[in-house]
Design a protein around this nucleic acid. Structure first.
Lengths: 342, 342
DNA sequence: CGAAATTGCTGAACCGGTTAAGTAAGAGGT
DNA sequence: ACCTCTTACTTAACCGGTTCAGCAATTTCG
């Protein structure tokens, strides 16, 4: 333990003494509560300013019951997706005077529990949760401790606040776009089986086909795993089975890019021979050749909406909706063009 | 009688009661201090576990003098650079049982002060600072409050702990690499004037030339601003003045990529006609065509080393070095080749 | 004009822990 | 046996705030 220094930090008692009032009065001034005359109030404020006094956060948190900080639990911070979440949460929290406590679980169940326990023991006034192992247990814990929480990118349950991206709508939008360009033979490339978001995008794809009375062709639905390589393989497969679609919708950019390079390698031109659309609007999507048309997720907004919702909750309000589904946006680039019937 | 149980959160007093001991004894057990018999210790531990008791973080922080969390102040989180810093800090902190409090200043001086005041009023046991407006003032504040701190990517002063990347060595390494490939006419492309890191890289460049007795040619030194566009322009300029180097070292990847596209556009082949090396190893550098050889900064390590150093400081140790300079790493890709004298 | 309500401030309990000082019982030394 | 050390706990003060009950002085009002 560090040697405790002798230079006392200034406390509320010191201020009270200087102003010839009680601690209580100082506290009321600090918190802008009424019951203090203007004279005394001003005097105290002046003394506080002059002595550069800052109330101790821990003591406030202990005595009152709020820390003025929100917690954010995410699996990792290895890519821009999470970075944008953080930014969104941080920005919105800051606007309301809240600070951010960041916790990452490293997709590790043990660590995840640890983190939850930490929150559970007061540390943040509320918590935004984005995790792999969400379970009844976690929500039960949070409920038990009466700490407000919002789930992120996981429309978990009906009676839980959550903010997510509308992947269904995104899939629908992507497919519709291709259809609007005249395409009818549209392939879909799945992410890993377990991926909820990929599935939702697929449902959007089906819905769009259906709405335009385009017959579903199961040969045009391919398996992937969100990795570049799987896009590459899937494209090869399409070529092999000699059922070339005129457009391909990949459940994420990585795979779209993989498919693109495979197709180009085999002599297909993008977008002249085949249009490709991805999902995510990753940085790489704007560097490919041709640049990749894709669906952008409003990640930043997701984070910031989650924070806003949480803070309302903290303040005892009851935001109207329980589940927010954010709309995606189509980013038109070069990889898609009108169907060329030639 | 209604045994009123308002779902109170369980405290150390409750545990003490259950175990028929005093709060103090429970506290000793929680903190693994000696002076408690094995029997009692085990009993208390069992009760703690059974009742799922978690000590209140705020109270501990107030009574003891540590929060078990480290603060990290960074300007923003908009790119992978910062994301990696965060990861590094978070990982290392976690290993020592510390949590991370993240604060971003949005490159806004006002916000920066706010954040510092927050820390100043206890909230983290120590803080890692990475900021635009570092000044005497900030370090004075931190010193005054006796809160340990470490600067990141800013070898600020000799008597302050700091962890940075050795940009000089990186510039030296990049240039040396080109020289080892037989190049003698090597251009350097600067970042913005104010950028310390760019300057350091330049010094490394000069040093490498000097060590190999390669005459310095000021025409081969170009101005840029770290943005892609400036790389593009610089390359054009090189072409115009008809003093084509055989290699180009850009102070960051963005500019390297910009230069690459300009050169390709004008019919130069990379790397056959001109080798290009960048700095940063951004994601984009591995997607270009040809892929970009570059210098990687050990960002993650920087964050993690900063955290380790800080935690030593917190624990009253005095780490040996005050300024850490981390070595960069050369990432060989396709954009550099042997000088072709043909 | 006297009672009631309001205003302005204080004292003290409390939040949930940590820790220094004190005590009683048992162990060790001579 | 006597005195001293340890060991194992307990008591109570404290960390730095918040907040409620209480009280005196002042204002409002029937």
């Amino acid at each position: 333990m560090p040697e405790k220094a002798a230079s006392k930090t200034i406390t509320i008692a010191d201020i009270a003494k200087m102003a010839n009032v009680s601690k209580a009065t100082v506290s009321y001034v600090i918190n802008n509560k009424k019951g203090v005359s203007l004279d005394v109030r001003k005097k105290i404020q002046r003394i506080i300013k002059e002595s550069n006094y800052k109330p101790n956060t821990m003591a406030r948190a202990l005595a009152g019951k709020h820390t003025n900080s929100v917690g954010l639990i995410i699996p990792d911070i290895s890519d821009m997706f999470y970075a944008n979440i953080i930014r969104g949460v941080e920005k919105a929290s800051g606007k309301f005077g809240y600070f951010l406590n960041l916790f990452t679980t490293h997709a590790n169940p043990e660590k995840e529990h640890e983190v939850f326990d930490f929150f559970t023991s007061s540390m943040a006034d509320g918590v935004i949760v984005m995790t792999y192992f969400v379970g009844k247990e976690v929500t039960r814990k949070l409920r038990q401790r009466k700490i407000p929480f919002v789930f992120l990118d996981f429309p978990y349950d009906d009676d839980i606040y959550s903010v997510s991206v509308d992947n269904f709508e995104g899939g629908f939008k992507a497919t519709n776009y291709l259809i609007s360009l005249g395409h009818k033979k549209i392939a879909f490339l799945h992410g890993p089986e377990a991926a909820r978001d990929s599935k939702a995008r697929y449902r959007g794809y089906l819905k769009a086909l259906e709405e335009h009375n385009i017959p579903f062709d199961k040969d045009l639905v391919l398996k992937g795993d969100f990795l570049r390589q799987s896009g590459f393989k899937a494209a090869k497969k399409l070529i092999d089975i000699k059922k070339m679609p005129t457009a391909l919708f990949a459940a994420n950019d990585q795979m779209a890019l993989g498919a693109m390079s495979a197709l180009k390698k085999e002599g297909y031109r993008v977008p002249e021979d085949i249009s490709i659309i991805g999902f995510d609007n990753t940085e790489a999507s704007s560097f490919s050749k041709p640049t990749l048309t894709t669906i952008m997720q409003p990640i930043f907004e997701m984070g910031s909406l989650a924070a806003k919702t949480l803070i309302s909750l903290i303040n005892g309000k009851t935001p109207e909706k329980k589940r927010y589904l954010l709309k995606t946006r189509l980013i038109e680039r070069q990889s898609c063009s009108y169907y060329n019937s030639r």
